[in-house]
Nucleic acid binder design. Structure first.
Lengths: 238, 238
DNA sequence: ACCTGAACACCGTTCAAGT
DNA sequence: ACCTGAACACCGTTCAAGT
């Protein structure tokens, strides 16, 4: 009865057999808890209750681990809802991408810096591409819109998350304006004139990050809507 | 005559006295040439023709070096042109930010991941904030627009640059579509169905990066223009 | 045949030992 | 008083020596 044997091993705690999946999950846990810099192959091994070098048996090296963690993150992207129209779909998509950054602030750089295209990301891109084409856009234009929107969501997410600074801080949204100002002050050079501090404060500390993202999203979608209407008109004329 | 002494030292090559500036410049050169991962305090020291530990005398540690390199990059941002109206100003700003990423693909992550706000960045933010207010927007709305646009430009830049992959590759724009496809294939999981590959190709390989950035920028600016008109109308009604 | 863990060539940073 | 460079506590990765 092999299942019993597996069960038994599982009871021993960390002694369950290693899988690529288990390695990636442990790595993500380390990063979530203590930051990207805390992730080392040795620490990963001990986190798994295993000889550190045993990890190499399941994974090609540290780069492969980082790619794997990025894959896990993309796996948390909510799938596209076929019931939504293209605009609601793109809204959900952008919010979903931003959510990945917010849920995993320490791991977030991996989303943009490891060039992996896991299936959940591809499925979403495909679905929204189709929705835009159905709304009257040709493929190149639809692709540009997806790429721009993705850039916006990822750039916004990464910028928000790096404002947070070191591991252990609470989310930027949950900070008071005063805390945000202090946090921002770390990034300011000394002896900066007051009007420049005010400008930085307006953009980084006083600016409500949720409202800012939503308004940027709406500006963009309004532009897309205009393009779609144009596309439909052109299609009807044909 | 101290100037002669300095001149003499300069002739000895790398033996000129260390400055924070010189340290940062050497660090940027290393990163530009061989990538972020190649930058170590030891390598930095030898690049400067100096005992590696001497660097610590001028700089707090590696984090300070990375912040300094980020500062150098922001220093290359073209200053805002007072003669431009708000729309041209924002266009130039976004293109200028993207240019930083493209000129320094290996150092680019520092622009978004080190939370420094050097003067050139602050001056630009201030100038465009003022321009938007003059165009009829209140400060919170203007700040949201700057922040969104900056997120878009940085997200676009970083995504483009990480698509490039390892140090030594030429720019994405200079690659043929075929090369781009191959590059993208590295990021694809195996056994992905064809329609998903097509979607990825549309967004990453076939999509002209220049046209995509420009069209995203225009979509966004069109939205801002509508908001400005609204703001002006409200102001006149008051 | 398999897996462990010693060993290699690196890190960032400190600090005592020399001048 | 100053600066060098040895030393410490880590890395990622390999591979031979054991079972």
């Amino acid at each position: 009865m092999p299942e019993a044997a597996i069960e038994e091993r599982r009871d021993e705690g960390e002694r369950a057999p290693l899988t690529r999946e288990r390695v990636f999950e442990a790595a993500l846990a380390v990063v979530d808890d203590d930051g990207l810099e805390a992730l080392s192959m040795r620490r990963l091994g001990t986190a798994l209750g295993v000889d550190p070098m045993a990890v190499y048996r399941h994974v090609d090296g540290k780069d492969a681990v980082l790619d794997g963690v990025a894959g896990l993150l993309w796996g948390e992207l909510p799938p596209a809802d076929a019931g939504e129209d293209w605009a609601d779909g793109l809204r959900s998509f952008a919010r979903g991408v931003l959510g990945l950054f917010r849920r995993h602030p320490h791991a977030a750089p991996l989303l943009i810096q490891r060039f992996v295209l896991p299936r959940p990301a591809l499925e979403a891109v495909h679905a929204h591409l189709e929705a835009l084409r159905a709304a009257g856009l040709d493929e190149p234009r639809a692709a540009q819109i997806i790429r721009s929107l993705l850039s916006f969501a990822m750039g916004y997410g990464l910028a928000e998350v790096t404002c947070l600074g070191e591991p252990g801080l609470d989310g930027w949204e949950r900070m008071s304006e005063r805390e945000r100002l202090l946090c921002m002050a770390r990034g300011l050079p000394e002896g900066v004139p007051g009007h420049l501090i005010d400008a930085a404060a307006a953009v980084y500390a006083e600016c409500d990050p949720e409202a800012c993202f939503e308004s940027g999203l709406e500006l963009f979608l309004a532009g897309v809507r205009a393009q779609c209407a144009e596309g439909m008109r052109a299609r009807r004329a044909r």
